[in-house]
Amino acid sequence: MAEINIKQVAKRFGKTDALHSIDLTVEDQEFVVLLGASGCGKTTLLRIVAGLETASSGEVHIGGRRVDHLPPKDRGIAMVFQNYAVFPHLTVYENIAFGLRMAKLDEKEIDNRVNRTASLMHIDALLKRYSGQLSGGQRQRVAVARALATEPEVILMDEPLSNLDALLRMEMRAELKGILAQSKTTTIYVTHDQVEAMSMADRIAIMEAGKIIQADTPVEIYRNPAAHFVGSFIGNPPMNFLPAKKMDSSTWQVAGASYHGPASDKSEIQFAIRPEDLIVDANGPLQATVKLVEPLGSHLLASCNVENTLFRVALDSDAQVKAGDTLSLQPMSDRVRWFDTETKLALQ
């Protein structure tokens, strides 16, 4: 059992706040992805959990034990680094055995575990090689095998796939997910790649400027962003936003049409809809002027202009649309979301 509890962890570098009082609980065997743009503090948070960085304040508990004063080796964690950090002076075998030798396991057990993890990661044939003789993808596998071999309760991964090429990344993504689920470890995984986050995570914690904005399942985050930032960060293309003016208590005017929305005392809020949640309908209330059409195979992406705001629509790939056309669109009513213009938070 290794639940991770992060309680009010803050980190200051000199005068800048890298992390503002972070609270996060990762359940036993859960796979949580920290997602955010570079500089949002996600790696700092991971390193604080690992013990490679000390928090300015707050507590970290792993498996019910407070660990923030312990060195990395006493936390029951293993880590995979972005640049792999495979020891160049040791063979693949010795790299994987490194943590086991530190744990003073007997030679037979070490041999068993090295062979088992090596075959799990499909690197049995490389055991005698040195890191200089491996490709990036192979080094990545060695780094993961080295972490798994110690059978840690918690695995921490810092952008482990970002140095691989796109095809390999997709392959490793699925493989890693399967292996980590089997190994029954609790995982925190840092990435800036939302596809990686969506496809691998049980839960995604979205970070911005040293804060966790939303921590939820991938679908929930995609469908119900808790803040404007989440909607504009998740999804490719991101959510469309339009200003909504108050008509009466819960009726809002958006681009010349009125919608039933949340009750709010603000005079203006934001209307939001995903590009694929719009239906082309001659009686639709939204008039969009097409500026640019991008055929993407699975669908056709039209970048339009609605009241001088960029508004993207995902259309069927057979749709006969060209620049200059005007589309009448019907937003799917259960997919419309509303955000406060000032707090940027979602409104119910």
Binding site: A50, G51, L52, P71, P72, K73, I77, A78, M79, F81, Q82, N83, A85, F87, P88, F98, G99, M102, A103, R146, T150, L156
Partner: peptide
Amino acid sequence: ELEEAAWTLGCN
């Protein structure tokens, strides 16, 4: 990172 990796693998 090489040093850090060693720390996480049980080294002081």
